[in-house]
Amino acid sequence: MTQYVELTEAAAFRVKEMMAHNGEEGSYLRVAVNGGGCSGLTYGLGFEETKSDEDHLLMQHGIQIVVAKDDAAILEGTKVDYKESLMGGGFTIDNPNAIASCGCGTSFRTAKKVGTPEACD
Rank of each mutant, 00 (worst) to 15 (best):
D71N: 13
A98L: 01
K16F: 00
Q3R: 11
D53L: 00
I99C: 09
S107D: 05
Y82F: 10
H61S: 03
G115N: 12
S85N: 08
S27P: 01
E17T: 07
K112L: 11
S27N: 04
N95M: 01
A111T: 06
A11K: 04
L41E: 02
K69N: 12
V5Q: 09
K112F: 08
E49D: 12
G35S: 15
L75F: 07
G90W: 03
H21C: 10
V80R: 01
E48H: 15
P117I: 12
Q64L: 15
Y28G: 05
F13K: 15
E24P: 01
H56L: 03
K113E: 15
A32Y: 02
E24G: 10
K83A: 09
K16Y: 01
C102A: 06
S39N: 05
E17H: 02
A98Y: 05
E6H: 14
V5S: 11
V114D: 05
G103V: 06
V15F: 03
M59D: 13
I99G: 03
G36P: 01
G37T: 04
T42F: 11
P96M: 10
E54M: 09
A73T: 10
E17Q: 06
E76A: 10
C38P: 03
S85K: 07
D81I: 04
T78H: 06
A11D: 01
K79V: 15
L86C: 04
S39I: 05
M19C: 04
H21A: 15
E54C: 04
G44R: 13
E84M: 14
G44Q: 07
T92Q: 13
T92A: 13
T42W: 06
R109F: 08
L58E: 03
R14D: 05
E54T: 08
T92M: 11
P96V: 03
V67W: 01
T50C: 09
A119M: 11
G77R: 01
H21F: 12
H21W: 14
S101L: 15
L45Q: 02
G35M: 08
A32H: 03
